[in-house]
């Protein structure tokens, strides 16, 4: 018998604090698998954000720094400038990246920082109790949008990948989802590409991963997957927004 699937070395054995069915666990694992496959575990420095994944440093078996809310791209910039030969990635949620840290992500991208960002978009603030996120859909309920997000007073959800793709310093921007095994496989491919782009020093790379929050969406994990597919994907279309121009053979 050969093992076809086990815990990647870049994850610690720690049990996560995530709610049942929360897809953060899947995304953590994909990042760890990619780091293993690229054989860069001992050269990688990760940055944990503020949000549900604030404790990511307990789960990644890597050197890690904890950033203030939204500041992960700035922290990553500092690290990468000191260690240009190391692999540096940020792992950020939608509040962290698309609200309080908008300036930091836009400018890290504009500078073409040679870092990789994993952007987990679940359209809600999980950790603080289900408040409206910058990516909450119009009509979607949140504790600070009890009748659903009202575009008139609360504006529209932000499509960060599309915005970042317009910035010259970005090399690779893709949006993926993890709602079924096929999409998980595609997500992993995109994450791998985003790390390879960094290794090849091509510029800033980001993968936006559509993710579920069963607890704050008020759905079972399975129903949440269905909700993501039916509601998030139409507004946040999957696919590669930007990739380096050279043709891959």
């Amino acid at each position: 018998m050969i093992t076809v699937f086990e815990r990647p070395k870049s994850l610690t054995p720690a049990k996560t604090h995530y709610c049942p069915g929360c897809t953060h666990g899947i995304i953590h694992r994909l990042v760890a698998e990619v780091i293993d496959e690229l054989d860069v575990r001992e050269d990688t420095i990760g940055i944990a954000p503020v949000g549900c994944s604030v404790l990511a440093y307990n789960y990644f078996n890597l050197d890690m720094q904890e950033a203030a809310h939204g500041r992960a791209p700035a922290v990553a910039t500092g690290i990468k400038r000191v260690h240009p030969d190391k692999v540096v990635f940020t792992y950020q949620g939608d509040g962290d990246l698309a609200a309080i840290g908008t300036a930091e992500i836009i400018h890290a991208a504009a500078r073409g920082e040679k870092i990789t960002t994993i952007f987990v978009n679940n359209a809600i603030y999980g950790m603080t109790g289900g408040q409206m996120a910058p990516t909450t859909l119009v009509g979607q309920e949140a504790t600070t949008a009890p009748s659903g997000r009202n575009a008139e007073t609360q504006g529209y959800p932000v499509r960060m990948s599309e915005i970042l793709a317009t910035i010259q310093g970005t090399a690779y921007i893709a949006r993926v989802s993890v709602h079924n095994p096929q999409e998980v496989a595609k997500a992993k491919k995109a994450i791998k590409k985003a790390f390879q782009i960094q290794l090849e020093r091509k510029g800033f790379a980001l993968v936006e991963v559509l993710s579920t929050c069963p607890t704050n969406w008020g759905l079972t994990p399975l129903a949440a997957m269905k909700w993501l597919q039916e509601n998030m994907i139409p507004y946040y279309p999957l696919g590669v927004q930007k990739t380096p121009e050279e043709v891959e053979v």
Binding site: A74, V75, E104, H107
Partner: peptide, 15 residues
Amino acid sequence: VAAINMVYGASGAGA
């Protein structure tokens, strides 16, 4: 805000 957080990153990286 970004500047001091870059300082944080660089310092954490040993510089």
